[in-house]
Design a protein around this nucleic acid. Structure first.
Lengths: 342, 342
DNA sequence: TTGAAAGCGATACCAG
DNA sequence: CTGGTATCGCTTTCAA
């Protein structure tokens, strides 16, 4: 009485068998409407609630998927998880959420938890997609998974991202075309973001192709949002630059604050470009340019892809979403997109 | 062989019983080091991974908690979930995530899913905390839960929030003190956010107390981020106002964009104030004022509170976090706080 | 210190 | 169309 009613209780109440109760829940079509009505009434009367854990134990599929992101404090990941959640909800899947806090060491633990839960598949954003023990484990255990935002070098791993190196290359090249000869890249730490490294590689290649030898790099620790000091040398010190290429929109926003703090007007005195999984944008004097790839949709895509893998209808494959440079205010777009109600 | 190893396999492999295996997993202290070593070796050899669903079925506690937020696309909720996740992780709890998309109709379904999962407790941000069937259900079934950001009128419901009405009152009052006589409130739809209504109430009270009869209200649909048209009447039309009080930081950001689009400089031509679960801030000419209550910590607090409820060590109680008006750039602070690495 | 065995709640096979 | 029953993997007495 005090404890929750089970199928057994419903069966007793309705004078039918537990097997029949199970049928009206799972295969209503296999049961006469009359019978179904009796059972349904009993369920309602008892306030019955199927215990999904019983089902999970019995079935091979758990209808559960695991998600691992660095942090939800970054809107890029948060909105992608929102997309995953939406798509999961539409397909009767339950989402278990974990985060690594950008710490590669914590990834394995988080994934272990997920696997102990016997998730049907995983969607992950890892610090480093290559040479990652988590990836090896998943591959070995043949658990379906798709990487989100990571761009692994192996092509037979399921992944959804933009071309990180190329997008940075394009942005730097565009800034160079506008006349900039002295550029700095603002990036996250490579250990906790392979995207950063890939984008930096693209940045360097662009400068090489333009015959610019001097490459500046400002690396920012995760969580660091005050770029006033880190950028001092470049904005008003000896290494004066005229343009910044930022690894992410969030860094670009922070960089803009720093520019203003140093008395520079953006984008008049300095140009700032931010790259994201969602957007490749540059503040290029005198107009800003950007292109937005909604991360929410990327999340939905990732789950759709994962569902295909789980059903065995699809093969793992790396998907590169197109990126564009176009006119518009990248940062403004970003902000506007994020602007929702509390 | 093809299927995952179970405790039975480990027992067989180690020549011990399944009960002993269970013991080394759950009560290592109750087992001789020698025995434990054998079992551990067998587990490693077999690549054993406990199936949490078996345990969940047997135990009354599932070590799982359910979370429901309107959306993760709003950084306020996303960071709070991040805080929950962090705290859960630190306590060996698994988080199941759902979202309502701001649709009150979807709340019950989401909570049902959570309850079917037999979560130990819930953390929820509801459209309306009062007269909510979800709350009634949870109360009736005696499932521990804590509301986050909601400020229910009943005091015996666990909740963590700021004083919505009072914070809006304070902000409006501060703006009036600066000389503003014509103010408008920018708020979300009341049906999907009781916070909005409570804040609007505070706004009205402030105007009443100041003897200002004219109260302007601009209500914005969820997802709407372009306030140029909605604010046209107030920013350059017949109803010219000199200050905007926004229900959330995100709305404030959108409002600022709209001001600029209308050729107004912020905060010279117009003042904008944003209220959030995290912050009560106003852009008050000539200086911005704000105070930040980190939502991430609110999430952590919520989970800590919930754990107390689950253990029966605490009683449900409504907690109001203090809010402040102080100097600083509310919007800038917000952005800086959000600025992390991809 | 260890093991046998009884469930936890649901699914699904196989008879009736 | 319906019901009995074995089973999923694990926890937890109760004996040995």
């Amino acid at each position: 009485m005090s404890s929750k009613p089970t199928m057994r209780d419903v069966a007793r109440k309705s004078g039918l068998s537990i097997a029949t109760v199970s049928r009206v829940i799972n295969f209503p079509a296999d049961v006469p409407a009359e019978t179904a009505k009796i059972v349904t009434a009993a369920m309602a009367y008892l306030n019955y609630r199927p215990n999904i854990n019983g089902r999970r134990l019995k079935m091979t599929q758990t209808s559960t998927i695991g998600v691992l992101v660095p942090t939800l404090a970054n809107p890029v990941f948060a909105t992608s998880v929102q997309g995953i959640e939406q798509e999961a909800n539409a397909n009767g899947l339950t989402v278990i959420l974990t985060s690594s806090e950008y710490d590669p060491e914590r990834e394995m633990g988080a994934v272990s938890t997920l696997l102990n839960n016997r998730v049907d598949g995983l969607i992950l954003t890892l610090a480093n997609a290559d040479n990652n023990p988590v990836v090896d484990l998943l591959l070995a255990e043949k658990i379906p998974f798709v990487l989100l935002f990571n761009q692994p070098s192996r092509a037979d791993i399921a992944a959804i991202s933009v071309d990180n190196a190329q997008s940075a290359y394009d942005m730097a090249t565009a800034m160079i075309a506008k006349g900039h000869r002295s550029l700095a890249m603002v990036a996250g730490q490579f250990e906790s973001s392979d995207r950063s490294r890939q984008r930096y590689d693209g940045f360097c290649r662009a400068l090489d192709d333009a015959g610019i030898a001097q490459k500046h790099l400002v690396q920012v620790r995760f969580g660091e949002t005050d770029l006033v000091a880190p950028l001092a040398d470049f904005l008003c010190g000896p290494e004066e630059v005229t343009g910044l290429v930022c690894s992410t929109d969030m860094l670009a926003i922070a960089a803009i604050s720093a520019c203003r703090a140093h008395g520079l007007s953006v984008p008049d005195d300095v140009s700032v470009g931010g790259i994201d999984g969602i957007s490749v944008g540059g503040l290029i004097t005198p107009k800003l340019c950007s292109a937005v790839q909604p991360t929410q949709e990327m999340g939905q895509q990732a789950l759709a892809f994962l569902r295909g893998l789980i059903k065995g209808q699809t093969n793992p494959q790396s998907l590169l979403l197109p990126h564009h440079l176009s006119d518009g205010d990248s940062i403004g777009d970003f902000r506007r997109r994020s602007s929702t109600l509390l």
